[in-house]
Design a protein around this nucleic acid. Structure first.
Length: 485
RNA sequence: GGCGGCGUACCCAAGUGGCCAAGGGGGAGGUCUGCAAAACCUUUAUUCAGCGGUUCAAAUCCGCUCGCCGCCUCCA
């Protein structure tokens, strides 16, 4: 397995620190507002990495934090005239709702910054003791000059950063690039007691404290959005390695941004969509599928059109699922020799898993993995078109279903029944008909068809289609589905 | 200014030295069907932004040019 490694800028063979175990830490969210789809992208890719590691047989420990104290939370609380922890609680709950919808599993440990104040203070004390951090005006700063490797992750030169002049001038800092480990609290702000007076932790130190506590001094994978690379992850390395004297994370994984009209989606530009907004119009699986259809490091352009295409793709899967179910229900299990189509399908089937793993082993190439899945779907349909029957054919289709379920579980897509998919679409698209209504219309149409009253039958079908319901006449029944795309 | 990335068909998107350049969406024609839909088949890139170079061989490596984007400040 290869993973793109931010430090060297190329794909490296993945070798965990402890064989057969994987420890990973992902930067979670600051809980001060609803999550947008950028948060979803990050959460989903790490969810997939974790699922794939488990699939490969690794024992995974996955830690994802919540930043529950921060300027933005304090500001939000002030605006709404409530306590900071009310805001944190509200948006932590909202986060879980969103992630549950998207099929993002809980991490093994989900620490909150405010539960690790003591651990952070201990690290800060030690850094001061080593002369790497200094106290200034009730706050504590990390002295980047004292950490020789500063800038190694983001490949930045300190001289150039200073020349860039976009760093704020702060009299309390010895070097403008120094960053706060502990912040002196101002009047009316939440605070904790510390050796340096009342205050609260700086942003970066929490990840150092929580990863140390749950994963140890060194662990395998650390990641988050590409915008965390600098300064957040750079600072984490500095603090952690200065404190422990050993290498921090072995592999750094950063996901690319979501863009709108080619521009980075961001809060400040105001061009962002919350997960909730999107799920108002689309099934959650559509968003998840869409985000996995591009490699995680590439930027991904977001639009309704893209989502509609994703919806059509998923529908192709569920349409095929209906076919395989039908086949297995009717197939007679007597002996019958496999046709040529059957034989070539059988070959594809045996190669499929390897293809899927090859794609995923290559830096979690979910886009390519999906390509293989759709190739399997096409060949499965082709096989079914050849009107197969017999025990061996049944086994092939059964095997197909197994493989699709197994790989679908890694990506956490394609895990519902076709009926569940269409019921969900019915709601999300506001069809305004119930399943019973549709079945009633199908019954009426069938009566007309029995009378060979094609005109009435076609009118019923057209009326339903206008409402977004498609009918498909099969040999012995008529199926309904929701129009996608 | 420094650092980094991207440019593959009508759209999205894999592919980073060598089998016909994956897959999805869309278009056109066909098979099937009462008609449809779905599915399948054929077709839609002799070519990978452009120009040079390295190589027996390049979308893939190197150089230059053009265009787009990101980071350097909180940010997934």
């Amino acid at each position: 397995m290869k993973i793109y490694y931010t430090l060297t800028g190329q794909k490296e063979v993945f070798e965990p620190l402890i064989p057969s175990r994987v420890s990973m830490y992902a930067c979670g969210v600051t809980v001060y507002d609803y999550c947008h789809i950028g948060h979803a992208r990050s959460a989903i890719i790490f969810d997939v990495i974790r699922r794939y590691m488990r699939y490969k047989g690794f024992q995974v420990t996955y830690v994802r934090n919540f930043t529950d104290i921060d300027d933005k939370i304090i500001n939000r609380a002030r605006q709404e005239n409530v306590s900071w922890d009310v805001i944190a609680k509200q948006y932590t709950d909202a986060y879980y709702e969103d992630m549950d919808m998207l099929g993002v599993g809980r991490a093994d440990v989900e620490p909150k910054a405010t539960e690790y104040i003591n651990e952070m203070i201990e690290i800060i004390k030690a850094l001061i003791g080593k002369g790497i951090a200094y106290v200034s005006d009730g706050s504590v700063y990390f002295s980047v000059d004292k950490f020789p490797g500063y800038g190694k992750l983001s490949k930045r030169d300190m001289e150039e950063m200073l020349a860039g002049a976009r760093v704020d001038v702060d009299k309390r800092k010895k070097n403008p690039l120094d960053f706060a480990l502990w912040k002196n609290s101002k009047e009316g702000e939440p605070f904790w007691e510390s050796p340096w007076g009342l205050g609260r932790p700086g942003w970066h130190i929490e990840c150092s404290a929580m990863s140390l506590k749950h994963l140890g001094e060194s662990f395998d994978i650390h990641g988050g959005g590409a915008d965390l690379l600098f300064p957040h992850h750079e600072n984490e390395i500095a603090q952690s390695e200065a404190f422990t004297g050993t290498p921090f994370a072995k592999y750094w994984v950063h996901n690319g941004f979501i863009t709108i009209d080619k521009e980075k989606m961001s809060k400040s530009l105001g061009n962002f969509f919350t997960i909730r907004e999107v799920l108002d119009k689309f099934d959650p699986e559509v968003l998840r599928f869409f985000l996995l259809s591009t490699h995680y490091r590439s930027p991904i352009e977001f639009s309704d059109e893209q989502l509609r295409e994703a919806e059509s793709s998923i529908d192709r899967y569920y349409t095929t699922a209906v076919r395989t179910n039908d086949f297995l229900e009717r197939n007679d299990s007597g002996y019958k020799e496999l046709s040529g189509t059957g034989k070539s399908f059988s070959e594809l089937l045996s190669a499929f898993k390897e293809s899927f793993e090859e794609a995923m082993d290559d830096d979690f190439n979910t886009a390519q993995a999906l390509g293989h899945i759709f190739e399997l779907i096409r060949e499965c349909n082709r096989f079914l078109d050849s009107k197969p029957s017999g025990q061996e054919a049944g086994e092939l289709i059964l095997k197909t279903r197994e493989l699709l379920t197994e790989t679908g579980t890694v990506l956490n897509i394609f895990n519902r029944t076709p009926l569940e998919w269409y019921s969900s679409l019915m709601h999300v698209k506001n069809i305004g008909l119930s399943e019973e209504d549709i079945l009633e219309q199908i019954g009426k149409r069938q009566d007309a068809r029995n009378r060979k009253d094609w005109q009435t039958a076609d009118i019923i079908r057209r009326d339903l289609e206008e409402k977004g319901v498609l009918l498909e006449d099969k040999k012995d029944r008529t199926d309904w589905k929701i129009k996608v795309g």
